[in-house]
Design a protein around this nucleic acid. Structure first.
Lengths: 352, 352
DNA sequence: GATGCACATGTAAGCGCTATCATTATACTT
DNA sequence: AAGTATAATGATAGCGCTTACATGTGCATC
């Protein structure tokens, strides 16, 4: 598996010129005579020479590579962000490498150290809601990173974080989701959220409460649970609501933290004998590729994650940090239905 | 956004020692007196010094970074591979960057050039079935890459490709899928495959044919279509079969290239008024996270993609190239049912 | 007290490029 | 023909590290 590559010296001696001249044709300088250029190009081709970005980076100020810190790639939500960043980066010859958040506290090879050592041209960090203590810890890590390279935040970025960012106003979004449910006639709207103890004014929780308030609906504690955003936990979340409450108090609508949670909710609802969407309207967020193929097809919110990733990469590459908020839009499918006061008997009828 | 980092010289002068000594404590050499070590470590901490991997790579022979070439990340199948490789790599302090296949033929910044310039310690390339001419082109690209770094192939790797690999015997797998359907009593088994013109003996097509043959079932051309592996195309694939054939000839089982295609098939079936799984058994491959949440929950094949990615990374990092085949297992869920000769009337009854 | 030998540390030569400056070949003045 | 501007090329000093190799201690040995 060993490989020995040609260097600029090999090419130079091959072409009978100095390395400076080779460097010139490499970078397409015009001050090289056509004859010389030809000789050099021939030598390059003959030796299959490719300049080493490593050596270039040492001299220059750019490594032509970006980093991205994501909780995990298995949730397609994050894969979309990565893809957006990667595609944008490639346009400018940048590569992007992944550093999962989960290993932040790894004893060896924690992402912060790996990132810093790599002297990337910048790093995109996906921020999630965190309980206050962890949030402080994150901030410290971010400020440390900032010493080594530009940092751009994405995701649910608290407004008091002093970093360039492309963020999502999750409060406004969740409020819109509540209002949509209200417009369908729902009054018992459950919410499966993420982290509870956060103080960020833009978090989903706040939007949920505001939406309810504007509709003059009570905010009932037993309609709200928290989880980590997986389908299993989403299912467990709704399970706990349905198992705790008497059927007459069951919510008629549930808003999930994300599509994964919503998938879990659909499952839970079915197992409790509810017909979807007649007995329960379910709404998710992220608009994953599978949303249209669920039954009923899941109404979700497109948060334009590819654009988020691309924009963040752009800020780094162009050296134009900024603070922006990405817009979003509700994607209507079949999982939400208008409420009917006098319900016919539930379960076990067609779902197609 | 500018950042100016401390170098080994700063630390050395700060600690009042030579850079060689700093380098020694950096690499944990034992020949440094405790007193000196302490001084140096203090200086490192004070200046927030992190050695540059760039400079290290120039001297040493390793860049501590891997590349991975994947068609696209949006299919969770590939995200699983990436995750496996990334997690394994991190254990040894390697980072991994992504180079999408789709941009192989990009005029500028094609992955092959980007990879070569980056002097990675190795690259994992995910190989898909390709028509013969494209396959030849791929092989040329791979051999070019090999000059610069170790290359490990994953995915459906033709046996005549002379590269270390972790491959999938898709023929054996598909054959097993057919036999499973046969064991359920199915005789009219459709197949939505990938590329048609490939000659690889391990491809799915071959397994489909062999499975049918062993069951003494005819291989009917109109039961087999090809697509690119998206849900939309999967749906279009089954649509075309159902639209072409009279209902009495409709297949009672369909095997999809992957779960995405299978999702599309479920959709198509529903739109044609079929009740699932009673009227049509559907099977996918890849065991995506959403498979359990589809309705009916999708029976699939787990091809252990995380392990594949991890193993490939391992080969590169340990410098132990090999040629291996990953095993797989059918994951039974609810989308496949035993056939019943005398069907009751179809559509519109419960699916829960 | 001269000799030898660990052990601890410093010196300096790369690694493969870029970029600055110096040098030479060529062309253009008057 | 001599002088000068101009274009083409070469020599070389870094960039931030690693790694022989050289140097300098202190201490046991005889």
């Amino acid at each position: 598996m060993t490989t020995e590559n040609a260097t600029i010296y090999d090419v130079a001696s091959d072409a009978g010129v100095s390395i400076a001249t080779v460097s010139r044709v490499l970078r397409g300088e015009s001050s090289v005579s056509p004859k010389t250029r030809e000789k050099v190009e021939a030598a390059i081709a003959r030796r299959h020479y490719r300049p080493s970005i490593i050596a270039r980076s040492l001299t220059g100020k750019t490594t032509k590579s970006l980093g991205i810190v994501l909780p995990k790639l298995l949730n397609p939500h994050y894969a979309m962000i990565f893809t957006g960043a990667q595609e944008e980066a490639r346009q400018s010859g940048y590569s992007v490498s992944l550093f999962p958040w989960s290993s932040l506290h790894a004893r060896e090879y924690d992402p912060a150290t790996m990132l810093a050592e790599r002297r990337l041209d910048g790093v995109i960090v996906c921020v999630e809601y965190l309980p206050p203590d962890q949030s402080e810890e994150l901030l410290t890590a971010l400020r440390g990173l900032k010493r080594f390279m530009p940092v751009v935040l994405i995701g649910c970025v608290p407004p008091d974080y002093d970093f360039p960012a492309v963020s999502l106003n999750a409060a406004a979004m969740t409020k819109a989701m509540v209002k949509y449910m209200v417009s369908l006639g729902h009054e018992k709207i459950a919410f499966i959220g993420g982290v509870q103890e956060d103080t960020d004014p833009l978090r989903r929780d706040v939007g949920y409460e505001e939406g309810l308030k504007e509709a003059k609906l009570p905010c009932i504690a037993s309609y709200r649970v928290y989880c980590k955003g997986t389908p299993e936990e989403g299912k467990a979340g709704l399970d706990s609501i349905l198992n705790t409450l008497k059927p007459e108090y069951w919510p008629t609508a549930v808003i999930g933290l994300n599509d994964l949670v919503a998938m879990g909710c659909q499952q839970s609802a079915r197992e409790h004998g509810l017909a979807l969407p007649r007995d329960l309207s379910v709404m998710g967020c992220d608009n994953l590729f599978c949303a249209p193929y669920l039954l009923p097809a899941l109404t979700s919110v497109d948060t334009h994650q590819q654009r988020v990733g691309a924009r963040a990469a752009q800020m780094i590459i162009r050296g134009e940090p900024a603070r922006e908020t990405m817009d979003w839009e509700i994607i209507h499918r079949d999982s939400c239905a208008a409420i009917r006061e006098n319900r016919p008997d539930a379960a076990n009828d067609s779902v197609i």
